[in-house]
């Protein structure tokens, strides 16, 4: 049986993004996500520095499995690619009727950019929030 996790937190985060943008503007949200990237993902950043791209693969596999997402990961010599077929955060919020902030997916673009900058990698994120699909890549320079 899958481990119980509190997926409603995705809805609270979405409302937090909405508050920041409504009250202080979009730049404020980007700055907050930059802080999240530097602080919350410090452990992952250090692992990537030590282990390389496999650390990202392990991290993605762990969290997307825990969230019961539909996803695929491909690791090649110079890059690791995550294909999210159905984002678990977006699908949960839609299922329970929470409002989804219109650029909820910005979090992956900004946080991945911070992780890439701190580890000397390049990041690419392309997403379609409407369908809950995205492709995230970390690549060696």
């Amino acid at each position: 049986m899958a481990e119980k996790i509190h997926k409603d937190f995705h809805g609270a985060l979405s409302v937090g993004f909405e508050y920041l943008v409504k009250r202080f503007g979009k730049k404020s949200l980007e700055e907050f996500l930059e802080v999240c990237g530097r602080t919350m993902y410090r452990g992952l950043i250090n692992k990537i520095k030590k282990e390389g791209l496999i650390a990202i693969e392990k991290y993605w596999d762990k969290i997307f499995s825990l969230e019961q997402a539909k996803f695929k990961i491909e690791r090649k010599e110079r890059e690791v690619v995550l294909k999210v077929i159905e984002c678990p955060a977006i699908s949960h919020m839609r299922k329970v009727g929470y409002p989804v902030y219109k650029d909820f997916c910005i979090q992956c673009r900004v946080i991945n950019r911070v992780i890439a900058r701190e580890t000397g990698l390049v990041s690419e994120v392309s997403y379609q929030q409407k369908t809950g699909r995205c492709i995230q890549i970390f690549r060696r320079r």
Partner: peptide, 11 residues
């Protein structure tokens, strides 16, 4: 994606 297991840290 900030996982729901990481939400408290983001909050």
């Amino acid at each position: 994606m900030i996982s729901c297991t990481e939400f408290i840290l983001a909050y």
